[in-house]
């Protein structure tokens, strides 16, 4: 069999835990890689900027650990969000689900069940909210924007109802310990390991399973997917469940990180997660996107935030910079897409 001619660029695949890419897919891999590489370039540039402006503070191990830890919570949410956006949907309720799961999992009653009780509750609340979203969207034929907007409102409301606006301190030692330095393995915080694991699983799910294929097909052309025999509605339900699950995991990470549960947790996570996915090259209209890109998007965001904080720049400036980055990323991607 003759090999089809494919662009003979070398595969400079770095990130995902791929099996060695096989040749016929090389063209595809390299195409994805141009985008990934440019994101890596931006991240590297940011690290250089951080290293130059605040050499001591930025490159300090503690600070790098902090950056990665902060990235973990929003990162896990972004992985779920990426799947939803790839399938042509949107999930505005992620922040509210994180808040609700974090307060439900830290009530006095839940904490009696210890570590497992907290983890279990966070995940189940996340899945439950995802189930409601999914049922409304897939079977109730509601527009994702509206269904998840409703979930955002009522989730936040319920979280406030549970806490009555108070911070719920975590008293379970095994949970608190996870966030402490003693639990770091080879200098890596457990939260970061969870984030890495979610990323790897998400990558495999998207690129190596029928679930991932179907998600992309539904987002690329729902009508064609339906006529090809895919159960589009069931797939949509699963996708919102997945997003809910990610929120549950993120809520648990946040509980560990903050040592408490609060109804204001996860504020504006939906916007950060959507922005990270878009920067990472996910099409808001669906049908195309990568986990690697989204995770790099998260890291870029968090690094900027960190550099700005270290340089004593106000939050206001940070947010303006974030906005500018979103616009720049989309403009650059449009150019690379047309060439």
């Amino acid at each position: 069999m003759t090999q089809p001619a494919s662009p003979a660029r070398p595969v400079t695949e770095k990130s995902p835990p791929a099996d060695a890419p096989k040749s016929p897919w090389r063209s595809l891999v390299t195409r994805v890689d141009v985008r990934t590489l440019s994101l890596l370039g931006v991240l590297a540039a940011l690290v250089v900027i951080g290293g130059v402006t605040e050499p001591d503070a930025f490159l300090d191990t503690d600070n790098l650990q902090l950056v990665l830890t902060q990235a973990s919570v929003i990162g896990v949410v972004t992985v779920g969000m990426t799947f939803v956006i790839i399938s042509g949907g949107i999930d505005l309720s992620v922040g509210a689900i994180v808040a609700l799961a974090s307060v439900w999992a830290t009530t006095v009653a839940t904490q009696e069940y210890g570590f497992a009780g907290i983890l279990f509750t966070a995940v189940v609340v996340g899945l439950g909210c995802g189930l409601v979203n999914g049922l409304l969207i897939a079977y109730g034929r509601m527009v994702p924007f509206i269904a998840t907007l409703a979930m955002l409102a009522s989730g936040r409301g319920l979280a406030l109802e549970i806490t009555d606006g108070k911070t719920q301190m975590v008293t379970v030692d095994s949970v608190l310990k996870l966030g402490e330095r003693d639990s770091y393995v080879l200098g890596i915080p457990p939260l970061v390991m969870v984030f890495a694991a979610v990323t790897v699983v998400g990558w495999l799910l998207l690129n190596r399973t029928t679930f991932g294929r179907r998600s992309v097909a539904v987002g690329g052309n729902a009508e064609a997917a339906r006529l090809a025999g895919i159960d589009v509605r069931r797939q949509r339900l699963y996708l919102y469940l997945l997003s809910g699950l990610c929120c549950g995991i993120a809520a648990f990470l946040l509980i560990v990180l903050a040592g408490s549960g609060q109804n204001t947790n996860g504020n504006l996570y939906e916007l950060d997660a959507i922005a990270a996915a878009i920067i990472g090259g996910t099409l808001l209209s669906g049908g195309r996107g990568t986990i690697t890109g989204s995770v790099l998007g998260v890291l870029i965001f968090i690094t900027i935030q960190n550099i700005f904080a270290l340089n004593n720049l106000e939050t206001a400036v940070q947010q303006i910079a974030k906005g500018a980055i979103i616009v720049a990323a989309v403009l650059v991607q449009r150019r690379t897409a047309t060439t």
Binding site: V216, G220, N221, I230, G287
Partner: peptide, 18 residues
């Protein structure tokens, strides 16, 4: 294009989807 194919995807994925 509107009902049959996943235009962003490769031929392989369009053929194997069912």
């Amino acid at each position: 294009k509107a009902q049959g194919l996943l235009m962003l995807e490769s031929v392989t994925r369009n053929v194997s989807v069912s």
